[in-house]
């Protein structure tokens, strides 16, 4: 193979059909309240971890819905499990349990 001094850029596009949706389905089955998220961002605003480091639980939830789980393990471990997000969620999602289920699913589908 020849060296060109550049490589083919990886696509940033979410390719929904190619993604693995098992993790999402597992979380939905075990914490059904996850489905009613409206991406308001209240959880991220109050997040103890997110105020100090690059961690966005709202965005992570969206990426799980799209089956984008590549960086998930590293990301989800930033959560301190303090539960403040549960207090602010306007739709009453059990966000703390959502995170626990995500962690469980990561182990399961590793």
């Amino acid at each position: 193979m020849k060296e060109f001094g550049f490589s083919i850029t990886k696509d940033r596009q979410i390719d929904y059909d190619q993604n693995d949706h098992r993790l999402l389905n597992f979380v939905l089955e075990n914490e059904p309240s996850f489905i009613v998220c409206i991406s308001c961002g209240g959880c991220t605003a109050t997040c103890s971890a997110g105020n100090l480091i690059d961690f966005n639980i709202r965005k992570l939830n969206i990426l799980i819905r799209r089956g984008e789980t590549e960086d998930l393990e590293r990301e989800i471990n930033k959560c301190m499990l303090c539960g403040k997000c549960m207090l602010v969620c306007p739709r009453g999602i059990n966000t703390r349990n959502v995170i626990l289920k995500i962690k469980e699913a990561i182990q399961k589908f590793r």
């Binding site: 001094g5 550049f6 083919i8 850029t9």
Partner: peptide, 8 residues
């Protein structure tokens, strides 16, 4: 250095 996304 930008040719990677040209070819992509």
């Amino acid at each position: 250095a930008n040719r990677g996304y040209s070819v992509a």
